[in-house]
Every structure is written in structure tokens, then in C-alpha cells.
């Protein structure tokens, strides 16, 4: 095995992730092309660009040795991987939100709260812990719309600045989890290529400390 493979999430986190790897000594020239594979200039790493929600799957199966994924995506996927380093990028929060009228409602007293979300597992877990009977409606996008059109009473969604919520006339009711991008490591690879992986982790950690 010569190059370690790294699954990176396409989309808003990609450039930040590549910049971090560059600072750690693995520079790349990514020109927003349609290429899905990309080698760093030192020849140590091969980046594969995949859909963010798929990163934990690639890493769990060992199709990628390393990966970068948000904790939100990682917990929702419940994939069994190591996550030795928080990368300090992609910071956001998973929140429960709803129309202003939802403020002050005691959800525990309601027989059936309908909640739209891209994170059905995390949402279900949250409501169970809170003792709230919720009906989870899984959606894959435009979550904020769900309350406006009467599909759901509340939403569980990611918030970075809070602007999208505000524009859709939603307010935050509770924070479910804080999230940042994590470095993921496949369990088998961690043992098989221990020395090489430790080197990457150390260099990333040093870049973060600078």
C-alpha cells in the first residue's frame, strides 16, 4: 500500500478540508473540476470526493482509510469507525426549531409531535431521551419548508448562522448537539498502517495547533 486514501465530503466543507491538509503538508491543486480522485503533491495521500453522508460508509468499509465528516453525519450514520481528531472546521449545531408559536409548548404533554428532519436517528434518540412522543418524518432537503406547508409541527435541522431559520420564520427551541468535522479512521487500517496513519494524524494536529 503506497497512498493512504482519504474520503472528503463534496460541497461546502471540501475547500476548508483541502486547505487544512495543505497546511499539514499535503498540498493539492483542486480546480473545481469534475474529478472525483485527487492525489496530493507529496504522493502520500489520495483524496476521493464523495457525498458527505457517504463518507462514514466509505471509511467503515475500508474503501477509504481516512475520512472527513461532520459529527452530525457521523452520529446519524452510526458507522463504527475511529474519530481521533476534531478538525475545528464545519462547526454547526443540530437544533430543534419551529414557528414562534411553538415557544413555551410542553411537548411532553402532546400525544404526537410531528417532526421533519434529515437526521431521523438523532431526532428519534433526542425525543426518546426527552420523553416526547414524536412522529419523525424523514426528508432529504428543504426541511425549513415542512412547517410552513403543514407537513410537520417542528423541524430538527443544522444551523450555522441561523439565517436560514430566520428567513423561514422559524426559531430555535433547543440545541440537540454541537458538531464539527472529525477525522475518521477505518479500524482495520488503523492497525494495518498504524505508523503511516499516526503520521497523518500528528501532522494534522500540529497544523491545527499552529
Amino acid at each position: 500500500m503506497d497512498k493512504l486514501t482519504v474520503a472528503l465530503p463534496k460541497g461546502r466543507l471540501l475547500n476548508e478540508a483541502l486547505a487544512l491538509f495543505t497546511r499539514a503538508g499535503y498540498p493539492t491543486h483542486y480546480t473545481n473540476s469534475r474529478r472525483l480522485l485527487l492525489d496530493d503533491e507529496t504522493g502520500s495521500l489520495r483524496f476521493m470526493l464523495v457525498k458527505p453522508v457517504d463518507v462514514p460508509t466509505y471509511v467503515e468499509y475500508g474503501a477509504a482509510v481516512l475520512g472527513v465528516a461532520g459529527e452530525d453525519v457521523l452520529r446519524e450514520s452510526a458507522r463504527d469507525v475511529y474519530e481521533p481528531l476534531g478538525l475545528g472546521i464545519g462547526k454547526c449545531r443540530l437544533v430543534l426549531a419551529g414557528p414562534p408559536s411553538a415557544k413555551g409548548r410542553n411537548l411532553r404533554l402532546e400525544p404526537n409531535v410531528r417532526v421533519a428532519t434529515k437526521y431521523p436517528r438523532l431526532a428519534r434518540q433526542y425525543f426518546q431521551e426527552q420523553g416526547i412522543s414524536a412522529e419523525i418524518i424523514p426528508l432529504s432537503g428543504s426541511i425549513e419548508l415542512a412547517t410552513t406547508v403543514g407537513l410537520a409541527d417542528l423541524v430538527v435541522d443544522l444551523v450555522q448562522t441561523g439565517r436560514t431559520l430566520k428567513e423561514n420564520n422559524l426559531i430555535e427551541l433547543a440545541t440537540i448537539m454541537e458538531s464539527q468535522a472529525m477525522l475518521l479512521v477505518n479500524r482495520a487500517s488503523h492497525k494495518l498502517y498504524f505508523e503511516a496513519i499516526r503520521e497523518v494524524i500528528n501532522r494534522l494536529a500540529q497544523a491545527l495547533a499552529r
Binding site: 467503515e60 468499509y61 475500508g62 479500524r187 482495520a188 494495518l192
Partner: peptide, 11 residues
């Protein structure tokens, strides 16, 4: 212990 083999991501 777990044994890991090259080419397979699981023990």
C-alpha cells in the same frame, strides 16, 4: 484481540 487483513475493512 481482533485480526485485520489487508483489503477488508472489518475484522
Amino acid at each position: 484481540f481482533h485480526a485485520y487483513v489487508e483489503g477488508l475493512g472489518f475484522h
